[in-house]
Structure formats: structure tokens, C-alpha cells
Simulated assay, not measured.
Amino acid sequence: MDEASFDEFYQTSFNRLVAQIYAMCGNITEAQDCVQEAFIRAWDKRRQLDKAQSPEAWVRTVAYRLSVSRWRRNSRARRDADRAVEPIRTYEPGPDRVAIDAALAQISPEQRRVVVLHHLCDMSVAEIAHEIGAPQGTVKARLSRGRAALAPFLIDVPEVRHA
């Protein structure tokens, strides 16, 4: 199909195809958009389309498939979000957590590490010593000094138990 015959095909078929797609999808604007898009795709394939293969049927099929795809996309957009793909909600830390984090920031990194490993990770002194590569006596000293350094910062936090 050359350019002139395609133009003639477009002018004689557009309104008829819009009416047909409108009857199928129930939305005149959607029908016009889908038929227009189908003709744009047909233009790219105009050399392969000939009158014997019913180019109108090809355009109608493409326009109908476009309207179905748009309907599906729009219906998915209006559905409630699937709980499995909901974004992970972030929660603000409570006042106790803020107080503990602030207190931990006041002690040395070495003391902070052993306190966290012991009290939050429930690791024994031997396990901590193995993980950080230090003697058990060093771990015990850091743990003792860390607890003593934390105590003044955690006095106002009633839920925190001193071990």
C-alpha cells in the first residue's frame, strides 16, 4: 500500500472503525485514541498491508487490543494496592529507643560495640571476644566501663533495666 492509498484508506475507514470500537469499549474518546494509535501502527506497516488482506480488520484488531490494554491498566490503577507489594512502612523510634541511642553515642566505640553485642545481640563474653578478636578480660572490662558510662544517661528511662 502506497501513501496515497493509505490516505484514502484512512479517510474512508476512520469513522467506521471509531464507531465499531466505541460499540466495543463504550467510550468515544478512548475509541478515537485507540483507532488513531492503530492507524499510526498501520502506517509503519503500510507496505505489508494490502487490500486483499483486509487492512481494516488489522486496524480494528489492533485498536480493540489497545482499548482492552488501556482498560486493564486503568482498572489496575483503581484497585486497592496489593498488600504483598505495599511499600514497607517506616516507623519512628519511640522515646526509649531515642534515649538509648543518644546514650550509646556518648560512650567510646569499643565500649558501645561490646554493650550492643552483649545486651542487644544476647552474645556471651566468650562469643564477643571471638568476634572482635580480643581477650575475654578486655571484653569484660569494656562491658563494665560501658555500663558505668551509660548509667548517668539512662536514669530517666524507667523501662530500661540495668543488668
Rank of each mutant, 00 (worst) to 15 (best):
D33K: 14
T90Y: 15
K140Y: 04
A105E: 10
H118V: 08
V98G: 02
N74M: 08
A134C: 07
L66R: 14
E56L: 03
E30D: 12
D44C: 11
V115C: 08
R112F: 05
I132S: 00
E56F: 02
V98L: 01
L143P: 08
Q111F: 05
E131M: 02
K140N: 03
R70E: 13
V115G: 00
D44I: 07
E56Q: 11
Q53E: 12
T138I: 09
E110D: 15
D80L: 13
R41D: 09
Q32I: 10
L66Q: 11
N74S: 15
Q106G: 10
C121P: 04
K140W: 03
R83D: 06
I107Y: 07
R147G: 15
T90N: 13
D101Q: 13
R147V: 14
T90C: 14
A134G: 01
A31W: 10
A141E: 09
R112C: 13
R145E: 02
G133S: 11
A63G: 01
V59N: 02
R78A: 11
G146D: 04
Y91I: 15
E37L: 00
E92D: 14
E92L: 15
V139M: 01
A57Q: 09
A141R: 13
G133N: 11
G146F: 09
D44T: 13
R65P: 00
R79K: 14
P95C: 08
R70C: 10
D82F: 07
G146I: 06
R147K: 14
A38W: 00
P135V: 09
Q106P: 01
R60S: 09
C121F: 06
W58A: 03
I128L: 02
A84S: 10
A126S: 14
S108H: 02
